[in-house]
């Protein structure tokens, strides 16, 4: 008790470290609830249009780059593992392990963003853009017309694609920033074993961002994977 009430990492307004950690964890869980609702707005909107315009959405989804998305899924899921190992290292006071796993997580997350960048570049190159002026030049337009699909609704899918992946990407970047901050904190000896919950709180956020990707993947990339169209 006295150890936990006189720790240098204990903040003044808390009674002991147990209370401090419980508060931090609860705070992060509540923030995650906020995040879930944030994306729920998007998912809800997507669900409406997916039901109304099923064939257009499946068609457009078939043009998305499934290969990059699959690799990205593997990267993110692996990064969740390394993040969890970082908590374990912090708890055991294994500082080099903490560095290694944090930096590995950072590398995997960065890899995700780099691949995402290539994917966007490819989409731009192929004119898979929702604006009417550019979209008419894409093979998507040609094929949609040939199949008698409404190109407006195909472009609606592209709106979702960019907004959803874009907002998710911003979350990844914020997560990467938090991981760098953790590295700095570890370097400044602010993460002794009894304060491992700092790492845990960041990991909760990272897992959520990962989990959201696991929903984006089927909605955006797998919806039309069965169709024989697109750049396969």
């Amino acid at each position: 008790m006295s150890a936990s009430t006189h720790s240098p990492v204990l903040k003044h307004h808390f009674g002991d470290l147990g209370q401090q950690h419980a508060s931090e964890r609860l705070g992060m869980w509540m923030f995650l609830a906020t995040e879930v609702l944030f994306f729920a707005g998007l998912f809800g909107a997507y669900a409406c249009y997916r039901l109304w315009y099923a064939s257009e959405f499946e068609f457009a989804s078939a043009f998305m780059n499934l290969k990059i998305a699959s690799i990205n899924t593997v990267l993110l899921v692996t990064s969740s593992l390394t993040m969890t190992l970082a908590i374990r290292a912090a708890k055991l006071g294994n500082k080099s392990g903490l560095y290694t796993h944090l930096l590995l997580t950072f590398a995997l997350g960065t890899g995700f963003m780099v691949l995402k960048g290539f994917e966007y570049a490819h989409d731009f190159h192929e004119s898979y853009l929702p604006g009417e002026g550019t979209f008419v030049h894409s093979n998507m337009q040609t094929e949609a017309v040939a199949r008698g699909l409404d190109t407006g609704k195909v472009r609606l899918f592209l709106c979702f694609y960019y907004i959803m992946t874009g907002i998710h990407g911003i979350h990844i970047v914020i997560g990467l920033g938090c991981i760098l901050w953790l590295v700095q904190q570890a370097y400044a000896n602010k993460i002794p074993p009894e304060n491992y919950s700092t790492v845990e709180v960041v990991s909760l956020y990272w897992h959520l961002v990962d989990a959201i990707w696991l929903f984006l993947m089927p909605l955006l990339y797998l919806a039309g994977a069965h169709l024989k169209v697109g750049p396969h």
Partner: peptide, 8 residues
């Protein structure tokens, strides 16, 4: 996605 011109 709220644009009625493209089915929104």
């Amino acid at each position: 996605i709220f644009d009625p011109m493209i089915g929104g």
